[in-house]
Design a binder for these strands. Structure first.
Lengths: 235, 235
DNA sequence: TGATCCGGCAGAGCGGTGCTCTTGAGTTCG
DNA sequence: CGAACTCAAGAGCACCGCTCTGCCGGATCA
């Protein structure tokens, strides 16, 4: 009984995955708003109503793709980081940021689905918050490692961190930035948002007629951000 | 003949504007993908095909709304800047950035349409690049003014600007950052992208369960960015 | 083994969409 | 006045998300 049920569930899981894969291919070519449940069903030789057995609605399909996207970009960052010498913190930072952007450029529609404007009426469910933090975890760990090694050396800016931010800093330190000082947490958060802001600007067309050599400029900008947090080359 | 033709064109322009206004109201409540040309026509008492006399396609309507959005957010930044003492550059920077975010929070769907993921298949036409640069012009002018006053004092980061970026710097200096040194141009560009990245992250849900007091944190982050460019309080 | 249950698929259908084409009024102007 | 033109209306096409109703076949159980 258990075996047969798992057999049924196995084929169900397989079909679910196949639908998601087909949808992801459509997403890659047509974009999120062009993703049609009917087209996915058509390509799989099913009728549209059959797909509803696996995904209750189009939004649920999109949610699955969003989770996949978070995991993919997170995995890319993790891999890039782990390929670096552990004690070369600026190199790890640059590599992770580069991987981020490279993934975004290779999967523009998936990136837009994940980090762009949410589709109207769509509300990110709880399941997305776990995978969503993978990238932040990679970036945070680099800072934390540098801090633990005693080489974090942030330039003084003379800007006081707001008191209201103390609780958030505490939570962030526990989850993704263990051991980091308050300033580093606050600046890392801005760098996190800033890095994605740069990628989004490039991908969404704001750099058109503004930045031509985007590889070079991106490297420069994220290096600056890392430097502001305290990552220093050759330390 | 000229009078009568302008009369016709006047009523035509008026109707065009009315359609755009109705569409903007729908956009504000439903979001970009929920904007239905038929619904707009319905509310105006026309039939859907009549709207096509004024906007050849739904994308053209969206383009008009995008241009309006750029102008609105640009105007908000300009107004906030002009309300400050001309020689208090950090205050002007903070005010402009605050106005940016305030406008985005007040018009989330319009902001998403303008700075979010472009709707699939949509290509930003030339007419958008002018209004798009209004915000950049405001931010750039603050930096330029500070430079002209001789109070721009950027902290040394020891990060060399890439040579490939020289041409872009030249173009940016001419258009929005007159008189600014290379470093300031490069850093200002990153701050520009970073500021919008922060607003987008907040609006698109990435700060959920991460930042609670977003007013305070935003002020802190944009102040830091201004400081990195060289804006210094009390200078 | 035979009856029963149930997951899954197909099809029809509803109300909605963007967009096109034709048709018929109303206006402008030679 | 009649011609040229503008514009609104309506019908219609192909598509969409989603629901409901049947039917089939394999798993479950008496």
């Amino acid at each position: 009984m258990n075996a047969s049920r798992t057999a049924r569930e196995r084929v169900r899981a397989e079909l679910t995955r196949e639908i998601a894969d087909t949808a992801r291919r459509h997403l890659a070519t047509e974009g999120a708003a062009g993703l049609s449940l009917r087209a996915v069903a058509r390509e799989m030789g099913m009728v549209s109503s059959a797909v509803y057995r696996y995904f209750p609605s189009r939004d649920d399909l999109l949610t699955a793709l969003i989770i996949d996207g978070y995991n993919a970009i997170g995995a890319a960052a993790e891999e890039a980081d782990s390929a670096c010498r552990r004690d070369d913190y600026p190199a790890r930072w640059l590599a992770a940021c580069r991987a981020l952007r490279a993934w975004a450029l290779a999967h523009p529609h998936e990136y837009a689905l994940v980090y762009g404007s949410p589709v109207p009426g769509y509300r990110a469910p709880e399941q997305t918050i776990g995978p969503a933090s993978r990238v932040a975890a990679v970036l945070g760990r680099i800072i934390s490692d540098a801090q633990a090694a005693g080489v974090l050396d942030p330039p003084g800016l003379g800007v006081a961190m707001p008191r209201e931010f103390a609780a958030d800093v505490g939570r962030l330190r526990e989850s993704v930035l263990p051991g980091a000082p308050d300033d580093a947490v606050a600046r890392a958060l801005a760098a996190w948002a800033g890095t994605f802001g740069m990628v989004s600007f490039e991908l969404f067309g704001q750099f058109e007629n503004v930045v031509t050599d985007r590889d070079a400029y991106y490297d420069y900008a994220v290096t600056c951000m890392g430097r502001v947090i305290g990552l220093r080359a050759g330390a």
